[in-house]
């Protein structure tokens, strides 16, 4: 088969992402920063499909596709091999979906973080597999969830993966999203400049699962930040917290929730509870920032102005 052989781009067109795919976009943005001297590990997740089907790949750098829970361990192995070969300039990128990081992959992540392996681990979270949507649910029933899977979906708050990683005292961890590409680029650059284990939680829209028109991919991801559902911040050495993108005004969570089909059945009460939770989490984050400034009560932002849902 004749395949295109030369690529000077981070990611080739022709990949198998759905229209409006946040994962494909996020990966391209990240790869553009990382450059060509890197090796990537991808566990079972959308990316293992999106990248392409043998004998082709869409990424400019080599990828090792591996089993779900193994990403960090495999990445550590690649780093080990590069070290013994003296190829220390080569970056190792772990690129895993939400489940690969939050679920079965967490054990290996924890271990690699504890050993401070020189890896950049990015969990692109499209909220599709780990059912983060249920995170926002109190009723546990959404349109699709009301069917056969309802009882099996998780009905709890999603774990705070950044807090988990910060507790490992790794040199750098951060949240990012594809709607703020400059912020994402800055964080990737920063992470690459730091030796050791770096973790990023990248919110990555999925029109298919979010049940949104594909053109709203970016807008709703931005809404996640503006509503404070997904604050953009970073933590250095597990203690130094800083907000990197501060939304101008407090936007009600409904701005994020109401336009997604997956949240179609959220009751007003459920939305109110989510709003309270988001505000409480935001206050916690602010306290951590204050603490990391040495307890000085430097308010990041005044008390949120209450807004009614549109």
């Amino acid at each position: 088969m004749m395949l295109p052989q030369n690529s000077d781009r981070a990611q080739e067109s022709g990949h198998l992402g759905c229209p409006g795919c946040g994962e494909a976009l996020g990966l391209r943005l990240v790869l553009e920063i990382i450059g060509s001297n890197a090796i990537m590990v991808v566990p079972a997740c959308c990316a293992s499909y999106v990248d392409g089907i043998w004998p082709s790949s869409a990424a400019r750098i080599p990828i090792l596709h591996v089993a779900m829970g193994t990403t960090a361990a495999v990445a550590a192995g690649i780093r080990a091999a590069l070290e013994v070969k003296g190829l220390n300039d080569t970056h190792v990128l772990a690129w895993a979906g939400g489940s690969g990081a939050f679920d079965s992959g967490l054990q290996a992540i924890s271990s690699a973080a504890e050993r401070n392996e020189d890896i950049l681990y990015i969990c692109y979270n499209n909220e599709s597999y780990i059912d983060m949507d249920i995170h926002y649910f109190t009723s546990g029933s959404n349109r699709r969830g009301g069917g056969a899977h309802a009882d099996h979906r998780r009905q709890r708050t999603q774990k705070n993966i950044i807090e988990i990683m910060a507790a490992h005292h790794i040199p750098y961890c951060a949240t990012a999203c594809v709607a703020y590409p400059d912020d994402l680029a800055d964080k990737v650059k920063k992470a690459l400049s730091i030796p050791g284990f770096k973790f990023m939680h990248l919110l990555s829209p999925c029109p298919t699962h979010w049940e949104i028109p594909s053109e709203l991919s970016i807008e709703l991801t931005r809404a996640a930040v503006e509503t404070r559902i997904f604050p953009l911040y970073e933590v250095e050495d597990g203690t130094k917290y800083a907000i990197s993108v501060l939304p101008g005004t407090f936007v009600p969570v409904s701005r994020f929730l109401s336009r997604q089909g997956r949240f179609a059945n959220l009751s007003a009460e459920a939305i109110r509870q989510i709003q309270n939770r988001v505000e409480s989490q935001w206050r916690q984050l602010q306290r951590r920032i204050e603490l990391s400034r040495g307890g000085v009560s430097g308010q990041v932002k005044a008390k949120p102005e209450k807004q009614t849902a549109p």
Binding site: G69, T70, A73, A81, K85, Q107
Partner: peptide
């Protein structure tokens, strides 16, 4: 590593890197 599963996974990464 933290498990036998990771022990082999890590080797898979290393071996694939040569």
């Amino acid at each position: 590593v933290e498990s036998a599963h990771s022990a082999l996974s890590t080797l898979i990464g290393a071996s694939a890197t040569g």
